[in-house]
């Protein structure tokens, strides 16, 4: 084989599926059969993985650090919830609508947010979340205000599979949405567009010198990411049949960031690991004392960034067990 074919092959093979990538899906399906009492927690984990995946596009691949991603999650949750309370109970169209509304907000907000950088960018992300919080809190009659939006009734999926009280349909529904979204994100990050995002993360000036409108690319990924976050929020609202102001909180933005960083950003699977680890730990520890949980979570992530930069998947790479994908 020529040197050219070899070098090109190395580059092209990175797009191909590896066997280890089947692992999370096998684990998710095994969980369905083996842990029937934990399907509600499992559904929440799947939702957070999807949310972390949306953030990974923005933060891990493009290098945009934001603390306002809950805005899009919450908007998706309220959109799906309000559709249902308003009489539109079909779930899949609800998902699409929620993602579209969140993406539209992403376009408007991103247009302002992405002109700034650093502290101002962080601040605007938080401000857009608080803005929605104020709206949701004050439109009491519509959103239920501080009590949250209850009575979200969802019609059977595809007209056949009802959302039962054991959460079986919810779990498989969340898993299916995550899988489809994951296929989409995986295709995007390895396509030329996704590679250009990685280039922007590494050096925007170089990408600009290649003729790339860095602002346009960043705005495009912001819209995509916002849409996916809205999708995650919609799945959350439909499966829990509830949306609340917590979906628009700083805590949620911060938590999803910590999940992604714990797992390892820019590697597609960081959210899978981070969300699973943190939510299982939280389920075990936080029931006793939620405040205590915040303390240990904070301490844990500080130690992590001091000693294990790059997250758990980064640790794997540093031990020589596999390189960074992005």
């Amino acid at each position: 084989m020529s040197a050219r074919a070899a070098a090109v092959g190395v580059l092209m093979r990175r797009r191909s599926w590896r066997w280890v990538e089947a692992l999370p899906w096998v684990a998710a399906i095994a969980g369905f059969f083996l842990l029937p009492n934990y399907l509600q927690l499992g559904t929440q984990i799947l939702v957070m993985i999807l949310f972390a995946l949306s953030l990974d596009l923005l933060l891990g691949y493009t290098g945009i650090v934001t603390l306002g991603h809950a805005a899009f999650f919450g908007l998706g949750a309220y959109t799906a919830g309000l559709l249902a309370t308003g009489g539109w109970h079909e779930p899949l169209s609800g998902l699409v609508a929620a993602a579209a509304v969140a993406a539209a907000l992403g376009l408007v907000a991103g247009f302002v947010i992405l002109r700034t950088s650093g502290l101002a960018l962080l601040m605007l992300g938080m401000a857009i979340t608080l803005l929605l919080y104020e709206v949701a809190n004050n439109l009491n009659g519509l959103t239920g205000g501080a009590d949250g939006l209850s009575g979200v009734e969802i019609a059977p999926l595809l007209g056949r599979f009802g959302f039962d009280m054991y959460g079986r349909t919810s779990y498989l529904y969340a898993l299916a949405v995550l899988f489809v979204a994951f296929l989409l994100v995986r295709a995007i990050v390895w396509a030329p567009f996704g590679r250009s995002l990685v280039g922007i993360r590494q050096n925007p000036a170089r990408m600009q010198a290649m003729g790339v409108s860095v602002f346009a690319r960043r705005l495009a990924v912001f819209v995509l990411s916002a849409g996916l976050a809205g999708l995650a929020g919609a799945v959350s609202a439909q499966t829990s049949q509830f949306a609340s102001l917590d979906n628009l909180s700083f805590d949620l933005s911060g938590t999803v960031l910590l999940m992604l960083v714990l797992g390892g950003p820019g590697r597609l699977y960081g959210g899978f690991i981070g969300a699973s680890v943190l939510m299982i730990a939280q389920d075990g520890l936080a029931k006793e004392n939620p405040v205590f949980w915040l303390f240990w979570l904070g301490l844990f992530v500080i130690l992590l960034v001091v000693f294990v930069p790059g997250g758990l998947l980064g640790l794997r790479a540093r031990l020589g067990l596999g390189g960074r994908d992005g």
Binding site: L257, G298, F300, I302, V305
Partner: peptide, 10 residues
């Protein structure tokens, strides 16, 4: 950001 969010939570 991650470090200071950790501190905030603590």
């Amino acid at each position: 950001v991650v470090m200071s969010v950790g501190l905030l939570f603590m």
